[in-house]
Amino acid sequence: MSVKQSGSSRGVTRRQFLAGTVGAACAAGLAGLGLVSYTRQASALPAYAIRPPGALAESDFLGACVRCGLCVRDCPYDTLRLAKPGEDVALGTPYFIAREIPCEMCEDIPCVVACPTGALDHSLTDIDKSRMGLAVVVDQETCIAFRGLRCEVCFNVCPARGKAITLEMQHNARSGKHARFIPIVHSTDCTGCGKCERACILEEAAIKIFPLHLAKGIQGEHYRLGWQEKDKAGQSLVTPDVEHKYNLPEGMGYDYEGQGLIIEEQAAETPYPDDPLETLNRGKDRI
């Protein structure tokens, strides 16, 4: 076999080359189409999966996180994990399940510091400002506080105790004479760390962390609450109403804020004394 000739004799014709190229392009195109629909599906985030503190908004996070697991490694409580193939969470991305191991809200936030890409936002330096999700009392039928029993476990384990969850005293209509202490979550302070969900004494927690977009309603932008606007402006924004007056007989009034109909004392002047006996006696005198 001649060494010099073998190079050219094995050459590819233009036709073969084109066919190969077109074939390769088609294969790539097909793969692309498949991938697009798969991406949509595979990057949906199930509600139980909570992102680490400081995680960018989900769509940005999926572009920024390289799935290196450095956040996972630096979490001292083994809270975080990377999604494995076969799990519902976008492959390789970090998350935690509050009911299993919640976030302990480290003051120095090692997970955020460890993130090389900024998928966990390095501008988060105060863990109280993180918003991993929001606690929601999802089931008022099983939460024993709603049944009038004293529980308050979620209230007590909350790292922002008394701020993120408060207890509201309500009348217990069942017994008619007791109080109920209802846990109320406040998004102003709840970080979504999940300690409440972890601690809920029920078999399946009645308080759960949801991603913010699932947990929160969003008010229409045009929406204004009169009393807030009034506070902001320092005065009523419309001409104050002339107070309505019922057309009542003299000596009577109406209190809009509670008492209702008022019969004024002085109008009660009557020819008759308070004690009916006296009237009778008076009558006898006249006779």
């Binding site: 790539a28 793969a31 692309g32 991938l35 798969y38 991406t39 595979a42 769509s59 572009g63 390289v66």
Partner: peptide, 19 residues
């Protein structure tokens, strides 16, 4: 390779890393 880069550009996510 081109496809994976295009996917990142179009979807704004690391689509290739999903598979």
């Amino acid at each position: 390779l081109g496809l994976t880069l295009a996917m990142a550009l179009v979807t704004g996510t690391l689509a290739w890393e999903l598979i």
